[in-house]
C-alpha cells in the first residue's frame, strides 16, 4: 500500500467535506473523540419512523468534525452516501474496517484504524441513543 494512503478520494473529501455542519432539529446526535490524536466528531441525524433507530430511515445527516484527513474524509463519504440514500440504518451497524477501506480505495494500517472508524462509531452511537 505504498503511497496510496492518500488517494484523490481522501484528499478531495478532506478539502471539501460534504454535508458539513449542524442539522436543525436532529432526532439523534452523538459525539466521539479519539483521545490519542484529539480527533473529534459530532453527528446530527434526522431519523424517520421507528424508535431507537430500528426500522427507521435516515432522512438527513450533518456533522462537525476536527481531525486528520482520514477521519474527515470517511465522515464526508458516509454522510454523502446517507444523504444519497445509498446507505441505510441496517447497513451502518454492520460496516467494518474493510468496507471503509473499499470506499476509500486504500488499505489502512492498524495504527490508523481508529481514524477511519471514528465517524462510523459516532453514527452508530447516535442511532442507538
Amino acid at each position: 500500500m505504498q503511497q496510496k494512503n492518500y488517494s484523490q478520494i481522501v484528499l478531495d473529501h478532506y478539502r471539501n467535506p460534504r454535508n458539513f455542519g449542524k442539522l436543525k432539529e436532529p432526532t439523534h446526535t452523538a459525539e466521539e473523540v479519539n483521545p490519542l490524536c484529539g480527533d473529534e466528531i459530532k453527528v446530527y441525524l434526522r431519523v424517520k419512523n421507528g424508535k431507537n433507530g430500528k426500522n427507521g430511515k435516515i432522512e438527513d445527516i450533518r456533522y462537525e468534525a476536527r481531525g486528520c484527513a482520514l477521519s474527515i474524509a470517511v465522515a464526508s463519504i458516509l454522510a454523502e452516501r446517507i444523504v444519497n440514500r445509498e446507505l441505510r440504518i441496517e447497513e451502518t451497524g454492520k460496516m467494518e474496517k474493510s468496507d471503509i477501506e473499499q470506499m476509500l480505495g486504500i488499505k489502512i494500517s492498524p495504527a490508523r484504524e481508529s481514524c477511519i472508524l471514528l465517524s462510523l462509531n459516532a453514527i452508530n452511537k447516535a442511532l442507538s441513543s
Binding site: 505504498q2 494512503n5 492518500y6 490524536c37 486528520c68 482520514l70 490508523r112 481514524c115
Partner: peptide, 21 residues
Amino acid sequence: VPPHDLASILDQRGIAIRTGH
C-alpha cells in the same frame, strides 16, 4: 497537514516520527 497524516506520509517514505500529545 494534520500531524497523523504527515506521519503516515513520512512512514511511506521510511521515516519514523511520532504524533499526538
